[in-house]
Write a protein that binds this DNA or RNA. Structure first.
Lengths: 196, 196
DNA sequence: GTCTATAGACCGATAGAC
DNA sequence: GTCTATCGGTCTATAGAC
């Protein structure tokens, strides 16, 4: 069973975003996290970067294209973490590298990445998204190997939800980033080491 | 330190929703989960229950009132679970009752409850919401007692995020409810039993 | 790459009849 | 409690000048 066929990510796309496009995506991600995807208009995005709507439409033809590009830019960060983990020398090292990377990502990106992953609009976009499924599959493979039983799926889903969801929780708002990072990592490691 | 002063929930409100209001809230919750709060219009809600916008406006004066009522109706379910747990005869039984109740709630309500809790609009509404803070505080108290250290906060946030987030995850979509319930409960119990 | 201006649909919200 | 009809405003998206 081949779990990491890079071919599905077709071409891997080298630079991806122009400077103007990057400004749009950065503003979009910020607004999506604050207002939700459905609650964010192109006018808001334009205002955020100090241009008019027409200038935004010059970079992306539709709002859906912006949503997709924004979601994919966050997905690419996760994919990079998965790729680093896959290149570790042992399964155990790979697992450890993966959870460290995901925790770092969650802390670094804050609500941006986490809110995006749970927004119904994005979930709908990703449901049929090949690259998303590929990354999730590789991620699960690092964590639980070839085990595709329901128990393994629930376990993987819980770990991802725990890490990405915890950083959004009100209980954690205002706490020092390093404290949260260390605690997340500690608990995630113990969760992983749980006997099945 | 008194953790469960029911006085803050003032009056406890007996029946709360008329039949017509209940139809609005049910439709709203369903649409919020599918399209997000910002992506749901009053026209959609009206269409869903087969009436006109004006009929909806007869039940609630503004969209914000609908959002608040929908969020509070889910909060009330969580509060009921917390209350049952508080009446257990020992801290250990209380913890077990709480996680069983939360897992059942997550399974039973599916995306409705979980999406609502992470929607930026709802998060904003609940940020200054006394009843919400009260329920969350009582919930944490059952899980970690009087410990308000950052570590205890992160731990509680992780457990809640893990349970409510896992049921939304694509990995879990399509799995049998009972299988998911049993596995969630098993892993949540082990997570709780982790030595600090 | 950015602007002004505009089209047409949909938004939240209200008035008033039944 | 539900309807029709309507208000002013915002939405996505486009045309065309600079």
């Amino acid at each position: 069973m081949n779990h990491s066929s890079a071919a599905t990510v077709d071409e891997a796309t080298p630079i991806l975003l122009s400077a103007a496009q990057a400004r749009v995506i950065t503003a979009a991600l910020d607004l999506f996290a604050r207002q939700g995807v459905g609650g964010t208009s192109l006018q808001m995005i334009a205002d955020e970067i100090g241009v008019t709507k027409a200038a935004v439409y010059h970079q992306y033809k539709t709002k859906d294209e912006i949503i997709l590009a924004a979601a994919e830019s966050e997905l690419r960060r996760l994919e990079a973490v998965v790729e680093v983990a896959e290149n570790e020398s042992s399964p155990k090292r790979a697992r450890d590298s993966l959870i460290t990377g995901i925790v770092d990502l969650a802390i670094e990106r804050g609500r941006s990445a986490s809110t995006i992953l749970s927004d119904p609009v994005i979930v709908g976009f990703f449901a049929d998204h090949d690259a998303f499924r590929d990354v999730m599959y590789r991620l699960r493979h690092i964590l639980v190997g070839d085990d595709t039983a329901p128990q393994a799926r629930v376990r993987t889903a819980m770990l991802i939800a725990a890490i990405s969801g915890a950083v959004m929780h009100p209980f954690v708002a205002g706490l020092d980033d390093d404290v949260v990072r260390i605690e997340l990592l500690r608990l995630a490691r113990r969760f992983l080491a749980l006997p099945t």
